[in-house]
Amino acid sequence: MLKPALEDLLREHAPQVLGALVRRYGDFAACEDAVQEALLAAAQQWPGDGVPAQPRNWLIRVASRRRIEMLRSEDARRRREDAVGHEPPAAPVSAVDDSLTLLLLCCHPALTTASQVALTLRAVGGLTTAEIARALLVPEATVGQRISRAKQRIREAGATFTLPPAGELAVRLVAVREVLYLIFNEGYTASSGARLHRVELTAEAVRLTRQLHARLPADGENAGLLALMLLTDARRPARARADGALVPLAEQDRAVWDHAAIAEGVALITATLARAPIGPYQLQAAIAAVHDEAASAAETDWPQILRLYEMLAALAPGPMVTLNRIVALAEVRGPAAALAELAQLEPQHRVLAVRAHLLEKAGDLAAAHAAYLAAARLTLSVPEQRYLTSRAAALAP
Rank of each mutant, 00 (worst) to 15 (best):
R333V: 09
R155P: 02
L273S: 02
R66P: 03
M311S: 13
Q145F: 09
S64Y: 03
R172C: 14
R325C: 04
A393N: 13
G125Q: 03
V84H: 08
A118H: 03
L182I: 14
I326N: 01
I269A: 01
A250K: 15
S94E: 10
L21F: 07
A90V: 12
V62K: 07
E360Q: 15
A330I: 08
N185I: 10
D97F: 09
Q304C: 09
L388F: 09
G19T: 05
I269V: 14
L10W: 02
P89C: 14
L136V: 07
M311L: 15
L308C: 05
R236C: 11
H197Y: 08
E12A: 15
F184V: 03
D8F: 12
L182W: 10
L365A: 03
I278S: 08
T129K: 03
S296D: 02
V124P: 02
V117W: 03
A14K: 06
V179N: 04
P319F: 01
V84S: 06
V382T: 13
L283F: 04
L173I: 11
K3D: 13
R65E: 10
E299R: 14
R79S: 15
A274S: 12
L246F: 14
A376N: 00
P317C: 13
E156W: 15
I183N: 02
A159D: 11
D258T: 09
V96H: 08
H108G: 05
R377D: 11
K361W: 01
L40V: 14
L329N: 05
E7C: 09
A34H: 05
L136C: 00
R134H: 13
W46M: 05
L246S: 11
W257E: 04
E32P: 02
T128E: 08
D98Q: 14
R210V: 07
P47D: 04
V174W: 13
T300R: 07
I132M: 02
E140Y: 05
L315G: 07
P397S: 14
A394K: 06
A41K: 11
A267D: 06
L105T: 09
